[in-house]
Simulated assay, not measured.
Amino acid sequence: MSHPTITLEAANQIIDAGQEKARDLGLNAAFVVLDAGANLVAFERMDGAWLASNDLALAKARTSVMFEAPSEALNAPLQLGEPVAHFDHTNGGLLLMGGGIPLFDTSERIIGAVGVSGGTPEQDAEIARAAAD
C-alpha cells in the first residue's frame, strides 16, 4: 500500500515560494520540508541566515507534522499555577512557536510539513504560510 507523500519537486517549489516571501520581508531564512513520517525531503538556508535557524526550522516542521497543525497553534499562553507543556526532551525536538505548517494532499491527508526560521515567530509563520500556499 502506498502512503501519501511529498515529492522533491513539490518540496523545492515550497521552498522557492518561501524564499520569495522572506526576501519581500527583508529576511534570510532556513527552510525544511519533511514528509508525513517526519523524514527530511529538502533543506535550504538562504545566504546570511543564522546558523541556529537550521535546527529551529527542523523542529518547527517536526512539530507540525507530528501534530498535523501549525506549530504556533500549539503555543498556548502561560497561566500562573498551571503546568507548562514542553517537549524539550523529545527525540528530535519539537518547537511550539510560529514557523511550522503541515502540508496536505487534495484528499486532506497529511503529506508532510514545512518549517521556517529566520525572523520573529510571527514572520516565520507568515513565510511558512506563503510557502505552503
Rank of each mutant, 00 (worst) to 15 (best):
A10C: 05
T120Q: 11
M1D: 10
G115S: 10
A69I: 05
D88Q: 11
Q13F: 00
L103C: 09
H3D: 08
S53Q: 03
D55W: 00
G99N: 11
A73P: 09
W50P: 00
Q19R: 12
N12K: 14
F31H: 11
H3K: 14
W50G: 14
A85I: 12
P102G: 12
R129V: 02
D16V: 03
A42K: 08
I15F: 06
Q19V: 04
F67I: 07
A73D: 15
V41H: 05
A22T: 00
M46H: 01
M1L: 10
R45I: 04
S64D: 09
A38G: 00
H3V: 08
A61I: 01
G115H: 08
V32L: 01
R23E: 01
W50Y: 09
F31Q: 08
N91G: 05
D133A: 13
L51S: 07
A76R: 13
P121W: 00
R129P: 05
P70Y: 06
D105V: 07
A38D: 06
D35M: 05
A113R: 12
A42P: 01
L94W: 12
R23A: 04
T120E: 08
E122S: 11
H86G: 10
E122L: 10
P70T: 12
F31K: 08
P102V: 05
F87W: 06
G115V: 01
A30W: 01
A73N: 13
F43K: 05
A57W: 02
L74F: 09
G93P: 11
L96P: 10
S64G: 13
G100D: 09
M46T: 01
A73F: 10
G93M: 10
D35N: 15
A57T: 02
M1I: 14
A11C: 06
G92K: 06
K60Q: 07
F104D: 10
E72K: 14
S2L: 12
I111P: 15
A125T: 01
L56S: 04
D133W: 02
A85L: 15
Q79W: 06
D47C: 02
E68P: 04
E20Y: 02
G118Y: 00
S117G: 15
G99R: 14
G92R: 07
F104V: 14
G18C: 01
A130L: 00
G115D: 06
L56I: 15
G18V: 02
A61W: 03
P102Y: 13
N28A: 15
V114H: 12
R45M: 12
E20A: 11
A22F: 01
E108A: 13
A42S: 15
G48K: 02
A36K: 09
D55R: 09
T90R: 07
L80S: 08
D88E: 06
A131V: 02
G100P: 09
P70S: 12
L8K: 10
E72T: 06
G112E: 06
G98F: 09
G115A: 11
G37V: 02
